[in-house]
């Protein structure tokens, strides 16, 4: 059910155009169904009988990013999981415009949660190749996806040998192996070193430039311009 809110037009900004760091090689912006807009209207979340948040709305145009902040347990992860379709909405609606009418929101989202979704007995390359196949993406993008976070030299090694930071990068490479218009990133910078955080930051900006949407929950300051910010754990936030 596509719907579109126009009530907070004032908050819309042009997509961030800041240039990536010159020394960082980045994958080319992916082709994606352009002009996807995502809107939430009055959504609420309940966990274990407790209302984590309610009456939450946002409206993201193509190229816009949303930052979710708030203390632990405020429902940041729950909100991301609701958008990814993993958690039911206690109230409200979530809608997209610009996609085929029958595409569910969850299939437009690439969700990178706390867990990395890596099989330790598969090689780095096999892990990514599986996600590209399963999420119905173009497998020719795999070399680029491996290169996005510098994992190309590790492609043939078992993922079980990777360090925590490398595993996180492998999880984030999924964003490139199976490109989707909406990125849902839950604390993406955990275990990453400074250089990798910059790579991630630049990757998000590139994604926005290409018309994508990013919804990020993070405690690390990023250079990405977030057009909106939601602070959970407070009364009636936006």
């Amino acid at each position: 059910m596509p719907l579109r809110h126009r009530d907070n037009d004032a908050k819309r900004r042009p997509a961030s155009l800041s240039k990536p760091h010159p020394c960082l090689k980045l994958a080319e912006p992916m082709q994606m169904p352009s002009e996807i807009a995502l809107a939430a209207h009055d959504i609420a979340c309940q966990r274990g009988g407790r209302t984590l948040f309610e009456g939450l709305s946002f409206d993201l145009e193509p190229g816009e990013a949303l930052l979710i902040s708030g203390p632990n347990g405020a429902g940041k992860t729950s909100l991301l999981r609701q958008i990814a379709g993993l958690l039911p909405l206690a109230a409200g609606r979530l809608g997209v415009t610009g996609a085929d009418n029958d595409t569910p929101v969850s299939e437009l989202c690439q969700y990178v949660g706390h867990l990395n979704a890596i099989k330790t007995s598969f090689s780095v390359g096999e892990n990514l190749a599986f996600w590209a196949e399963f999420l119905d993406a173009d497998e020719n993008a795999l070399p680029q996806a491996l290169a996005a976070f510098g994992l190309t030299p590790l492609a043939d090694l078992p993922a079980g040998l990777l360090s925590a930071g490398q595993r996180r990068k492998l999880a984030l490479s999924r964003l490139f192996a199976a490109p989707r218009p909406v990125w849902l990133l839950d604390e993406p910078s955990v275990a990453l070193d400074t250089v990798s955080v910059e790579l991630l930051d630049a990757a998000i900006r590139n994604h926005l430039t290409a018309g994508g949407i990013a919804i990020v929950s993070t405690h690390v300051p990023l250079k990405t311009k977030f057009s909106q910010e939601i602070t959970l754990g407070q009364e009636r936030s936006i």
């Binding site: 999981r81 990814a84 379709g85 993993l86 969850s106 299939e107 989202c109 690439q110 969700y111 949660g113 706390h114 867990l115 990395n116 979704a117 890596i118 099989k119 996600w131 399963f134 999420l135 119905d136 999924r174």
Partner: peptide, 13 residues
């Protein structure tokens, strides 16, 4: 379920 794969599988086609 343990390693988070199920979440990503659920967002698949």
């Amino acid at each position: 379920y343990e390693d988070g794969t199920l979440d990503v599988l659920a967002t698949g086609p």
